[in-house]
Simulated scan of single mutants.
Amino acid sequence: MGTAKVQWRKSSKSTDSQGNCLEVAALGDEILIRESDDPDVVIRTTQAKLRAFIDSAVAGEFDSLA
């Protein structure tokens, strides 16, 4: 991540007592996503791509994967 300070956030709905949850952060034009139990693995994307993914998930486009 370099020297930039990253402010990670997690959902208030994350209640796993072991701390396993997704965290997100903004760094410049990028959106960073990681799992709290493996914080060294970070996915980088853009706000537009993340919005498209979330909209698709809400619309049920990935329901057949479960």
Rank of each mutant, 00 (worst) to 15 (best):
K5P: 05
Q7C: 06
Q7T: 10
Q7G: 03
Q7I: 08
W8T: 00
W8S: 00
R9G: 01
R9S: 11
S11Y: 14
S12G: 12
S12W: 09
K13H: 14
S14Y: 10
T15D: 04
D16I: 06
S17P: 04
Q18R: 14
Q18I: 08
G19S: 05
N20C: 07
N20T: 13
C21Y: 01
C21V: 07
L22E: 02
E23A: 08
E23C: 04
E23P: 00
E23Q: 15
V24I: 15
V24W: 01
A25E: 02
L27F: 06
G28W: 14
G28P: 01
E30A: 10
I31L: 13
I31V: 15
L32K: 02
I33H: 01
I33A: 05
I33M: 07
R34N: 02
E35Y: 05
S36Q: 07
S36C: 14
S36W: 00
D38R: 04
D38Y: 02
D38W: 00
V41F: 10
V41Q: 07
I43E: 05
R44P: 02
T45S: 08
T45Y: 01
T45A: 03
T46L: 06
Q47H: 10
Q47V: 09
Q47S: 13
Q47N: 12
Q47G: 12
A48L: 12
